[in-house]
Write a protein that binds this DNA or RNA. Sequence first.
DNA 1: TACTTCGGCGCC
DNA 2: AAAGGGCGCCGAAGTA
Length: 462
Amino acid sequence: MIPTEKHAYQLLHDGALAFADVEQNGMRVDVPYLDKTIAQTDRKIKHLTKRLRDSKFFAEWRRIFGQKTNMGSREQLGHVLFTFMGLECKHRTPTGKPKVDEGVLEGIDVPEVQKYLQIEKLKKARSTYLQGIKREVCGEFIHPFFNLNLARSYRSSSDHPNFQNMPIRNKQMGKLIRSCFIPRKGHRIVELDYSGIEVRIAACYHQDSNMLGYIHDPKSDMHRDMAQQIYFLTKKQMTKEIRFCAKSYFVFAQFYGDYYLNCAKSLWDTIDRDKLKLADGTPMKEHLRSKGITELGACDRDESPVPGTFEHHLKFVEHDFWKNRFKEYDQWKWDWWNEYCATGEFQMLTGFRVHGDYTKKQVINYPIQGSAFHCLLWSLTQLNHWLKRKKMRSCIVGQIHDSIVADVYESELDDYLGMANEISTKKIRKHWPWIITPLEIEVEATGINQSWFTKKQIEIPT
DNA sequence: TACTTCGGCGCC
DNA sequence: AAAGGGCGCCGAAGTA
C-alpha cells in the first residue's frame, strides 16, 4: 500500500486524539521538592551574585554603565570585555553585534566571567524550568501540550511547559530538574526510545547501499568508523567519548547540512573542553601531532585550508563521506531537491504532500524528520489505544520526538514492554511496508516511586 | 503597560 | 554555491 494524503490525515487525526489523552494524563510532580529547590536555587543565585557584585571587575562595569548597570545583560558584559578591556572580539551575531555566548565566554580567562556563567546557568534552571514547571502545576500534576500543527517539519512541539527540552546532558542541571518528576504511587517512569530512527528512516528514502549495510550489520558501526577516520585511530584506541564526538559534531552535523569548517572547529574545540584521550591515555592533541596535525587552521571560508591542519583533514573526510562512503545518499539529495524544484512539491513516505517555498536543506531534512516522528506518533497512538482497551493503570504521559514517556504500574511492566516492542518494531512495518530497515527500541526505567532523573536502561523481556 | 525583536540556551 | 535541520521560553532592550 502506498500511503495517500487520506491516510496522512488519519494519522494526525488519531494522533491528536491520543495526544489529548496524554495531556489529560499529565506528569506527576514532586511539589515539596520543587518548592524546596526553587528556594535553594534562589539562595545560590543571590550568594553568587553578591560575590560578583563585590568584585573589582564589577566596579568597572558599574563605572561604565552607571544607573543603567544590569548584571543580567550580556550586551553590557560584552561591552566591558571588548570595548573597555580591549579583548579581541572574534565572533559576531548575524546583526553584527559581538557574540557573548557560553562558547565565547568560556574562552575568556577572567575569574569573574566564569562566575557570571555559573550564575546564568542557575538562572536558566530557575526561570525556564523550576518556575516554568511550578507555574503549570495543577494538584500535583503538569499537563504539557503536545501540538501537531506548529512545526514546519511535520514534527510535534510542546509547550506550557515545554516537555521536550528538560535538561539531561548537563548532569548537575539534569538532576536538579528531572528530580521534579515522579511516577504515580506504585509506578515507574518508563521511557522508550527508537534507536537511530532518523538514520533508518533516511535510508528508506535514499536507500544508499553502504548505509543499509551499516544498519543491517550489527557488528558495523558508522560513528565508530567515522571517529577512526577523523582522529586517525585503530579500533583499540577508540573510546565511547571519542565516538560520541564524531557522532554529534561530524555525522549528524553533516546530515543536517553542515560543512567541514564548522565541523572541524567544534571537533577541535571539544578536544580541550572534554580533555579527550585515547584508550591508552594518550592526549588526543599529542596523538594528532604524531600524525602530522598540529593546528586547527584559520577556518576562514575565504582561504583554502593549509595541509597539516585539522581543517584541511576534515575537508578530505567530508569529501570522502559524501563522494565515496555515502555517494548514493549524496545523489539522492540532489535528485530529491531537483524534483522539488521541477514540481514545487515533495511527498513524504507517510503520505504528506508538501508544497510551498522551502530551502534545499528544508526539502532534504523535513521528509526525514517528519516521517521519523510519524513512526513515533503511530506507535504512541496504537499503544495508547491498547492501554485503554485493556483498562490498564499504566498511561502515557509524554513524548519527545523519538521517545515515549509512560507512567507504568509495577505489575504491568512486562506486558507494557512486550506490547510496546511489538507495536513499535513489528506492527508498524506491517502497516508501512515502505519501512525497509529494521527498527529497534531501547528502554529506560526508574525504580518504583523514583524520580525521572534516576532512570536506567533495562532489558526488554522476550 | 503591551508588544516585538534579538540573542541565548535547553532538548531531539 | 553556501556554509547547522526542528522546536519553546527566557531576559534585555527598544518602540508604541
